[in-house]
Design a protein around this nucleic acid. Structure first.
Lengths: 232, 232
DNA sequence: CGGCGGTGTTAATGTGCTGTTAACAGTTGT
DNA sequence: ACAACTGTTAACAGCACATTAACACCGCCG
């Protein structure tokens, strides 16, 4: 299985250092941030979805709760563990309501953190997924189930079924050349001149939709078909 | 949708009563035991798997830890929440190592327990939402059991069974796109043109009913279905 | 370089899907 | 039998979307 990718947001540098060391030693791939804004930028800019987030509640600029709901907006399923100095019941409840999956009170033991991380990661691929299957497309988040395409700023665009199907098809064959005729057979069921022109119209629209991430392109392979080009 | 089946093992009868009442009100199906042996018998005898287990650590005859590993032997994936009087770090860590997924220290608040239950059930998708008799829908209160919808001013509207079923279905999938065909299959049992038009009539009515709260919308996803949009 | 077929893009078009109201039919209770 | 209530069908208006049209452009072939 892939190394689990963990986002860790903590403004206390010395604690952050220790924790990072420990978790990396456990074989996790860590991305550390020191304030909420940085974290948001990292999430928006990443080409992948994190497997788990560990957030300090007290952060400069953007507090942990706000950060958590921003993260949830982009990936409703990712487990979030809050770190907090307070251990008041009301704070815990507030945090759980706002989307935390678990709570750890500072000072915490590394062992306990590791155990809690394992608990959530263990379940990561067991999920039978009625939660929308989200796909990262560069910095965009594509939700085929809900026909939604979200850009790095969090703006959502609603797609039609055909648009979503075509985008998914290209995504399933990203960085590969797909033939016009294959797409038409696959998504339209037949292949004639006019449906071909229809396909062109759709490609044109998708190009507009993916423009927010300028590393994404849909290349034309003249006389053959198209190729969705994207990093990773 | 299936009610979530929860095993609750607790030897303190008065606490057990309160908790049971609360959780059943939330729409969970509870099986209560008062010691470890009874719990083991129940698990062995049941012809279904529990969706979640809540175990007191201090139990007569068989302690919570032993019980937990027995449960795990039968169902390695079921989430287990421990209830404990102690809140020592060593105890928590010990518990987590032995297969607990979360820990709650007595005395605990019912709200926190409910939230923690939800966190684990959500991930298993046993129930995307438990179906409490009363559900808040923005400022409205929806009582599916009694077919009542109450607005912010306290005015009550009586719903028909189908209206209530449809509203509940949308609520169970709020902020998700639900397909016409799925709704029809689920609530009407079949999917043809006329039933589809019937569905439109019902959606039209529900739109009227939820208008008192202008943050609530039922969006049409052309050619696909509907989406109940509501805050939180 | 010149032509032709393939493609990009925008706008117009028409079909099918949806919103809504009202009539209708079936059921229940009186 | 009647009234009240519920779900379905009808009818018509309105809209969204896939398709078609139109025109500009490009790249490959001679």
């Amino acid at each position: 299985m892939m190394k689990a990718h963990i986002l860790y947001v903590e403004d206390d540098q010395s604690l952050s250092f220790v924790t990072r060391d420990n978790l990396e030693l456990q074989g996790y791939q860590l991305t550390c941030c020191h304030d909420g804004q940085e974290a948001l930028a990292v999430i928006s800019g990443a080409d992948f979805l994190f497997d788990l987030c560990i957030l300090d509640v007290m952060l400069p600029h953007v507090d942990g709760y706000t950060l958590a709901s921003e993260i949830r907006r982009r990936d409703p399923a990712v487990p979030i563990i809050f770190l907090t100095a307070k251990s008041l019941k009301e704070d815990r409840i507030q945090g759980l309501k706002l989307g935390a999956d678990d709570y750890l009170t500072k000072p915490f033991s590394m062992e306990e953190l590791q155990l809690k991380i394992e608990i959530f990661l263990r379940r990561r691929h067991v999920v039978s997924d009625p939660l929308p299957a989200l796909t990262k497309l560069g910095t965009l988040v594509f939700d085929h189930e809900n026909l939604l395409l979200q850009d790095a700023r969090g703006d959502e665009r609603r797609l039609t079924q055909k648009e979503a199907d075509l985008l998914r098809y290209l995504l399933e064959h990203k960085n590969q050349v797909v033939r016009r005729s294959t797409i038409l057979e696959e998504l339209w069921g037949e292949d004639d001149y006019f449906l071909g022109r229809s396909l062109d119209v759709f490609i044109s629209r998708l190009r507009k939709y993916v423009r927010p991430d300028n590393r994404l392109r849909i290349d034309t392979i003249h006389g053959v078909g198209f190729q969705l080009v994207c990093p990773d």
